[in-house]
């Protein structure tokens, strides 16, 4: 920009920035403060001393080790499936001509409009019908692929120059090899973004696991934390310790993968 910003405006923007930063981080810090205070101290004062008792209680009574493992497992599998199945389905939609292509694409866009919340009953009955109730497979399967993910991958594949694909054809590569050796590497940034979104969504998911997971050994972290809230109303702090356990891994992953988070990805395609 050519003209300089007046100093008062810069000051105002800095103040806003600090306020936003404080609001974004404050509640998470408060969570940590509550989690490390001994039971019975005043929640409003941060001077009650430090303790790890709440984490021990969460680990022992809530058996947080198992939910932690379950959350890692379901998140990894769900994100992996999301990327692979979406990339598979997107390839013919972007690059091949076949009967029913437009119809299939339209049906896909329709599923993007369907909120899972309104079809919980049939989804639940299908899982029960498949004898998958109270299993980690049930927590993953319905969300193994999303129309949003397919759409995102299709956009990325459409941007791959056709000449690359033709060159591979001439060299005798089949569709699977072209998909794997040409399309996937070139769409890698999009796939990484999709993986990041899937990990965030799967790690946070509460409603569906709450419905299909019944026994404590199958709980994911969000379900285990809510069940701790109900179980120990006298010592809510164990739930807070569990919440800290649920927060730390996803923040680490986010910081590691943050370079795949670009504003441009939010321009055209936003999950509905």
């Amino acid at each position: 920009m050519i003209d300089r910003r007046p100093i008062w405006l810069t000051l105002f923007i800095v103040c806003c920035a600090l306020l936003f930063a404080l609001l974004a981080v404050g509640p998470a810090v408060w969570l940590l403060v509550i989690a490390v205070q001994p039971a019975g101290t005043d929640l409003s004062s941060a001077t009650g001393g430090l303790t790890l008792d709440n984490f021990k209680a969460a680990w022992r009574d809530g058996q947080m080790g198992r939910p932690l493992l379950n959350s890692v497992l379901t998140t990894v599998v769900r994100a992996g499936l999301n990327v692979m199945l979406a990339a598979l389905a997107a390839y013919p939609l972007a690059r091949m001509r076949f009967r029913g292509k437009n119809l299939i694409f339209l049906a896909l866009l329709c599923t993007m409009m369907i909120p899972e919340q309104v079809i919980l009953v049939p989804m639940f009955r299908i899982v029960v019908g498949l004898s998958l109730y109270d299993s980690l497979i049930a927590a993953v399967l319905p969300f193994g692929v999303t129309a949003f993910g397919i759409y995102l991958c299709r956009q990325a594949f459409l941007a791959v120059p056709a000449s690359l694909e033709e060159a591979a054809r001439v060299d005798g590569a089949g569709s699977v090899r072209i998909w794997w050796h040409v399309m996937l590497p070139l769409a890698a940034p999009t796939l990484a973004t999709l993986a990041l979104f899937s990990v965030i969504g799967a790690w946070s998911d509460l409603l569906w696991p709450l419905i299909v997971l019944q026994s404590q050994e199958n709980f994911t972290l969000p379900v285990a934390v809510t069940s701790l809230m109900g179980q120990f109303s006298t010592n809510l702090r164990a739930a807070y310790a569990g919440a800290v356990l649920a927060l730390v891994p996803i923040i680490i992953i986010f910081i590691l993968l943050q370079r795949f988070l670009k504003p441009e990805m939010f321009g055209g395609a936003v999950k509905g």
């Binding site: 920035a17 936003f20 930063a21 974004a24 981080v25 509640p27 998470a28 408060w30 969570l31 509550i34 929640l43 965030i200 790690w203 946070s204 509460l206 972290l221 969000p222 934390v225 809510t226 809230m229 739930a239 807070y240 919440a243 800290v244 649920a246 927060l247 996803i250 923040i251 986010f254 910081i255 943050q258 988070l261």
Partner: peptide, 23 residues
């Protein structure tokens, strides 16, 4: 700052709700 302001999005809703429940 952009990354910092995205942290709440990454925070699981259960965790965010508990934090605010404390407040």
């Amino acid at each position: 700052l952009r990354l910092l302001l995205f942290l709440p999005v990454v925070t699981p809703t259960v965790v965010a709700s508990l934090a605010w429940k404390g407040l």
